[in-house]
Design a protein around this nucleic acid. Sequence first.
DNA 1: AATGATTAAGATAATGATTATCATTTTAAC
DNA 2: GTTAAAATGATAATCATTATCTTAATCATT
Lengths: 133, 133
Amino acid sequence: MSALSPLTPHQATIFNLLKTLESEVSAQMIYAELRQQKHRLGLATVYRGLKHLQLQGAVQARLLSNGEAVYSLVSEEKLYVTCVKCGISVPLAYCPIDEQVLPQALSLRFKIFYHTLEFFGLCSPCLEQETVA
Amino acid sequence: MSALSPLTPHQATIFNLLKTLESEVSAQMIYAELRQQKHRLGLATVYRGLKHLQLQGAVQARLLSNGEAVYSLVSEEKLYVTCVKCGISVPLAYCPIDEQVLPQALSLRFKIFYHTLEFFGLCSPCLEQETVA
DNA sequence: AATGATTAAGATAATGATTATCATTTTAAC
DNA sequence: GTTAAAATGATAATCATTATCTTAATCATT
Ligand SMILES: [Mn+2]
Ligand SMILES: [Mn+2]
Ligand SMILES: [Zn+2]
Ligand SMILES: [Zn+2]
């Protein structure tokens, strides 16, 4: 996360809220929380702000199996085990890399079917558009 | 993928289609393709069949950034680079593990912001329900 | 074979997070 | 201060997925 382009007050508010949270949160939850704190902003602004922060490389998103996206700061490594049936997503203590050591990293018992490793960033065309605009 | 519990004709059809495909496909695409092949089945049956195969550990799903799920056989390791702006998802040739070697594995140039490693399977309660029922 | 129970399937409405739209306000530039 | 550009709010539209409900197969038992 290099220098962030200037944030609007609302974007900064969203960013600061994420800083205070240790867990992932959905856009809807951010919206509800900020309204609770008497911030007068719209839901669309939350989505737009999150997208902006994501394009800066400051915020990361993860899609839950129910189709909902959860957001958090780009910082420590995130590793989860997710149940394909009920969708429960349990964070792991550390990155096992090897499936053999997974049971040690996981308190609960999971029967693992598969895993995915995915990198997120900007492709060449989009990166150019970002640097220009 | 151990012994599969008996599949219905429709479930077998879906499974066989996935076997013939080398790339991931959405439920909607499976539906369209099978209808094209004059199979008379409903969209809901496709979703139910995929869910069934997923619970057997035979099929895996991945959520695209547009919220659409794509399915494939549980087999070779899947690794992708996804653009946070346009959502394009490019498969990598091999598993780099280390971010340092990522550029070598990727023909296109991506600016990587973060990555996620996620395991999928059945949690204890759901596994029990599966073995019983 | 007939009966009844259980599961699968089809059709379609409902869901709900996300996105698009557009009018309005705020900010920045000159 | 005037004008252009960007941000915002409110709300409608989108659309993959899920839920619902009815009908059709499938299976076990007599
Ligand atoms: Mn791996
Ligand atoms: Mn890692
Ligand atoms: Zn579960
Ligand atoms: Zn892109």
